[in-house]
């Protein structure tokens, strides 16, 4: 049994490196942050306040075409698939700043994954927009093209 488990693991690693949509090696290595930070949720009202007071940067996890259609003012586009292709895009952000991640739908597992990754890189203040962009729009808050 151990032989089957070992062979499939080695084979999986090898094929993943050749796979055009494989997971890059640096995204498999353990995260080394010592920070006790956790991902929090922020409601649209508080997020809007943070936007007005320029206290936070917004990160849009949706596909690029949806981001281009409309997004929260000043938001950074970071589609999940693009992140897997260019993981350095997160490392270029300042870890001491506050970031609010969002998708369109209330259920945004992709944002949770990216947020967990950011905490692992040592980001101290990462939140997910409650209800996503749909709740933001539902509250009548503005977006830009």
């Amino acid at each position: 049994m151990l032989l089957i488990l070992s062979l499939t693991l080695v084979g999986g690693i090898f094929i993943n490196q050749l796979h055009p949509q494989g997971i890059r090696w640096e995204l498999l290595l353990p995260l080394s942050a010592n920070t006790p930070a956790t991902v929090t949720a922020i409601n649209p009202e508080d997020a809007f306040l943070a936007l007005m007071q320029e206290e936070a940067y917004f990160i849009d996890i949706r596909p690029a075409e949806e981001f281009e259609a409309d997004h929260i003012a000043g938001a950074i586009s970071l589609p999940l698939f693009d992140y897997f292709q260019s993981p350095d895009s997160l490392r270029n952000l300042a870890p001491e700043k506050k970031y609010i991640l969002y998708c369109f739908d209330p259920e945004c597992k992709e944002a949770e994954m990216i947020a967990a990754e950011m905490i692992g890189y040592g980001f101290q203040n990462v939140a997910i927009l409650e209800g996503g962009l749909s709740a933001w729009l539902g509250n009548g808050f503005p977006t830009e093209l």
Partner: peptide, 20 residues
């Protein structure tokens, strides 16, 4: 499991299923 371990499982489990 955590974010990184989930990726290890993602590149291993399908091949285990296939070989089995």
């Amino acid at each position: 499991i955590g974010v990184r371990l989930s990726r290890w499982v993602a590149i291993w489990l399908p091949y285990l299923e296939l070989i089995l």
